[in-house]
Nucleic acid binder design. Structure first.
Lengths: 176, 176
DNA sequence: AGATATATGTTATAGTATAACGCAAAACAG
DNA sequence: CTGTTTTGCGTTATACTATAACATATATCT
């Protein structure tokens, strides 16, 4: 399971923008992912595994072509579908999210939990935090219900300033 | 031409998917737009005006290239920036919205009101309804505030089934 | 009228995404 | 364990979306 005490940035939304030991939370998420996929009868192949690691290491949203570049450099395929397929697989299995505003992908920091997260995107430093979207999803569902619409999936993305950048007014790279 | 019995609503959120006289609500919105731009000291030039009309007539989300095709056919420029500039202008002035999930644009049905609307996108018939997003924006803002994040703009998009399609389970073309 | 700012149109190019095919490896049935 | 089926990978090729940069024209403001 996910251990909040060892991964401040992952476990607690409150710390999403704070510096923390990231390699540890990567490991934790990877382990979770393996268990979860095994249970779902899905295969975590080398490309898929490496793609997830790349996203986790970056700890920020990455474009498909950025991911592809890294994969290619490591001996995997060199063509776009290689990256897109892996990313889509991860997304479908709740291990990654697509950030539409950025045409980018990011590792899910809370795999296993059923969640429709809201993303907080800093327009200066580009860091993306995953905020609990349950309450938001609820009010969206209610608004939809009133007009007879059935929500299946939701995209919730906020653009603005993260704590660090809102103080300095210039990009602060809180995570490397 | 417009068929009231097949055109989901635009005036009232409650009627978003209900039949109504659409040519009329187009006119209303156009009129509102003119007043509003005049007040803001912005110019509603021919391309911009026509672009807005095109979106209003379509009454659905349109890709920039679809809009461009129509503009070009009417003697305006034939290159992408022509459409993108007009669409961006409309968006910046609250007269159109960008639907990121569809890489498309749609006319705003409530210009003048300050609003961060949520969009309900039917995955079968592709109709897009603009639901009141105030409550949703509020809960998003609160969630963000907890982590020190300042929301400037939000993208709220739900994919699912509109009333008509959820009954028939096959695309219902409410618009032609 | 002249200076300045705003808009339009163009060419060219960058960036994002998917369709379709062949091959290889894994999973499965007998 | 062998043939069959399914799944995944890698490729080529192409489609779709978006923007930079520049030239020309039209408003706007002294």
């Amino acid at each position: 399971m996910h251990d909040p005490s060892t991964c401040p940035g992952c476990a607690q939304p409150d710390l999403a923008f704070a510096p923390h030991d990231h390699s540890r939370c990567s490991d934790v998420v990877m382990a979770l992912a393996e268990v979860q996929l095994a249970q779902a009868g899905q295969r975590l192949t080398p490309v898929r595994r490496r793609t997830l690691q790349i996203l986790l290491e970056a700890h920020r949203a990455m474009g498909a072509y950025d991911v592809l570049e890294r994969l290619a450099a490591e001996g995997f395929g060199h063509q776009p579908p290689v990256a897109y397929r892996a990313l889509e697989f991860l997304e479908e299995n709740g291990l990654a999210h697509r950030i539409r505003r950025l045409n980018a992908f990011t590792a899910c920091m809370h795999p296993g939990e059923i969640h429709a997260p809201a993303f907080l995107i800093c327009r200066l430093c580009n860091v993306v935090a995953e905020a609990p979207g349950a309450a938001i999803g609820l009010s969206l569902g209610q608004a939809a219900k009133k007009v007879g619409f059935t929500v299946e999936r939701a995209t919730l993305e906020a653009l603005g300033l993260c704590p660090a950048c809102s103080i300095s007014q210039s990009p602060v790279r809180g995570l490397a």
